[in-house]
Design a protein around this nucleic acid. Structure first.
Length: 310
DNA sequence: GCTTTACGAAGATATAGGGC
DNA sequence: GCCCTATATCTTCGTAAAGC
């Protein structure tokens, strides 16, 4: 499998002078990518400017940042043409890698605006190199700028930042530094949410698991779904007994604890999230915890009103 | 029984730090 | 300037205790 390390530059409405188009708040104007083989060695590159059709003025802040002017874009390809070329360049067997979680989301939003066939009909697995950098070298939670990571790894800064191709190239260099085992911490893009039960997402990490449900009309219906409220042991996949039934200390998050005779106390947490069209979906995470942590959650539950028990 | 005060929880708002 | 996410802080509200 190849790695497609992708970076985009985009422009936005020049507030006050140009109305914002709601369906495309950010218009992609520069696509850069580097293809790495399975050993993370560079085997090809892609670099293309896009001729904009939505925002004809460069936003001041953006213009200063990315060092691109409207006249540079006049010779660019139309978005649809550039994407067709780019996607066939990507090939068949690959995973997208980006710095931060936004690029893949904006790419799909732009494709949708131009009524292109979607990249996928379900959530997309990708590598967020910004997150991987934090896991490999920092505290797993912080998010650093690309330049910080380049300085940290003492990689030579031979081209300016904030152009799609150069940032993709820098990101690829960082990716090739990161130890193989860290790459298991992949991310899920939810521009497209699971549409059916079959498309729902189950992700196993070494110390926790994550589940992303399909959409439901509201919170109550989500919390009635068997799969949503199921608390099977994610290691041995057996049904296990609930020690603490689902409860919500605040109406947004739900907690439960089950006990697996082999793996111990498993805490599950449900977050209810809003999707675009006023529906909701569920992100459930499960992990094994100590008896002491179990006691703390029990205390939290005792403070919760009965009406919030499920 | 009414008013004041204190406190904690929940919700709303602000901030920070990343992206362009 | 706007988007996204996570976290911190402020505000509001309900309840309980204290004072009269």
């Amino acid at each position: 499998m190849n790695y497609i390390v992708l970076d985009l530059e985009w422009n936005q409405s020049n507030t006050g002078n140009e109305p914002e188009v709601k369906e495309i708040p950010f218009e992609i104007i520069d696509i850069g990518a580097v293809k790495l083989n399975g050993q993370r060695v560079m085997i090809d590159t892609y670099n293309q400017l896009i001729k904009p059709t939505v925002y004809k003025q460069m936003h001041m802040i953006t213009g200063n940042l990315i060092q691109l002017h409207m006249k540079d874009l006049e010779t660019g390809d139309p978005f649809i043409k550039a994407m067709d070329t780019f996607l066939s360049w990507c090939g068949e067997d690959y995973i997208f890698c980006t710095w931060g979680p936004l690029d893949l989301y904006e790419l799909q939003r732009n494709m949708h605006y131009y009524e292109m066939e979607p990249l996928s009909h379900k959530p997309i697995k990708f590598l967020d190199v910004q997150k991987l950098f934090s896991i490999a070298y920092e505290d797993k939670k912080s998010r650093r700028s690309l330049e910080y990571a380049i300085d940290y790894l003492k990689i030579e800064k031979d081209v300016p930042f904030h152009r799609a191709y150069s940032d993709a190239h820098y990101t690829a260099e960082i990716l090739s530094f990161i130890e193989e085992s860290v790459l298991e911490n992949y991310s899920i893009d939810t521009y497209i949410l699971p549409k059916t039960k079959k498309d729902e997402v189950y992700v196993m990490f070494h110390d926790y698991m994550k589940y992303i449900s399909r959409e439901f009309p509201d919170k109550l219906q989500a919390m009635e779904d068997k799969e949503v409220i199921s608390t099977k042991c994610y290691l041995c996949r057996r049904n296990i007994r609930k020690k603490i039934r689902w409860f919500s200390p605040n109406g947004k998050h739900y907690y439960s604890i089950s006990f697996c005779p082999v793996h111990g106390y498993m805490k599950s947490k449900i977050r209810i999230r809003r999707s675009g069209n006023d529906k909701v979906y569920v992100v459930k995470t499960s992990k094994f915890i100590s008896k002491e942590d179990c006691r703390k959650i029990l205390q939290k539950k005792d403070k919760t009103k009965d009406s919030d028990l499920v």
